[in-house]
Amino acid sequence: MASEPVKNFNQEMEFFVDMQRCIGCRACEAACAECETNGEEPMIHVNYVDRAHSVQTTVQVCMHCEDPACANVCPADAIAKDSNGVVHSANTSLCIGCSNCVMACPFGVPKKMEAAELMMKCNLCYDRTSIGKKPMCATVCPSGALYFGPREEIQKKRPHSTPVNTFKFGNQTVNTKVYVMMPNGSTELRVH
């Protein structure tokens, strides 16, 4: 099907997210809006988990699923995963703005830009990661909630944590390219 740009994607560099470290400063959001692939619209999500009872905030990037639900439910074939495992934002000429992906993504990632009738989502700062740079958000996060780099490095920094990329949503198991930091010994994160 679609061909893809030839790039120097550095597979040694991986994404590790520890959302409970998020302090809600929205620096990542401002940085995300600088990413050239989404033209001034931030694609990262920062929100309160349950403001009535806690000040906890969470941050969510696209997890770049191995078998992306978003792409599967897209009636327009607008979402493509490339050979680097990056799941791209909707193809602008194909997306019909149906929001299937917005609602099927188990991580709540894609955004529907209503006026433009177009879905947009995090594409791992493809303009940057495809030339070996880090995504914008990970370069500014002050709390270490977003970390992009070699696995040995994060392992050294966080000896009590294990990166996990298997998630359970009820009966569904989802494997992803992006990791979430979990207590040592964990093999999965059961959401429900």
Partner: peptide, 30 residues
Amino acid sequence: FNFDLEGGGSHLDYSPEGKRAALAKAQFAA
């Protein structure tokens, strides 16, 4: 794909924000 939950209902009943919060709560709990 099967997003049915054990106690009935589905992960798809949650809004995108609800889904993100559910994940954050589960990670925090762990």
